[in-house]
């Protein structure tokens, strides 16, 4: 039963990713796009870890943390750009 649930939930996450990608496409502002990218990333983190459960490959889990880290960095870049127009200040 576990494997069926895992596979089913991963499909739900795929739907989440597809829907949010269309939001990125529609916009309209940069803020919306970044929010949607955040959502996509959090969705794909779970998707990836679910798949590493499904594949029975624990070592694949390690990819999730960089995903979370770097999308945070992307948020911060954009927000600092919007706020100050200069990333170094």
């Amino acid at each position: 039963m576990i494997w069926e649930i895992v596979l089913f939930v991963s499909i739900l996450y795929l739907i989440n990713i597809v829907l949010l990608t269309i939001i990125v496409f529609k916009g309209p502002t940069i803020g919306d796009q970044v929010l949607a990218i955040d959502g996509i990333t959090y969705g794909s983190i779970v998707l990836l870890i679910l798949f590493s459960v499904y594949f029975k490959e624990p070592i694949l889990t390690v990819v999730a943390i960089p995903l979370a880290l770097w999308v945070y960095a992307l948020d911060i870049y954009v927000s600092k750009y919007l706020e100050r127009g200069d990333l170094g200040a």
Partner: peptide
């Protein structure tokens, strides 16, 4: 950056965790 994220998922599904770990900092960060 979004495209890079998708490629990272693709790399993952193609069983290349090393590449994901290299690629994410480089292409998303």
């Amino acid at each position: 950056a979004l495209q890079s994220g998708f490629y990272a998922v693709l790399y993952y599904l193609l069983m290349a965790p090393d590449i994901v770990l290299v690629y994410l900092p480089v292409a998303v960060g």
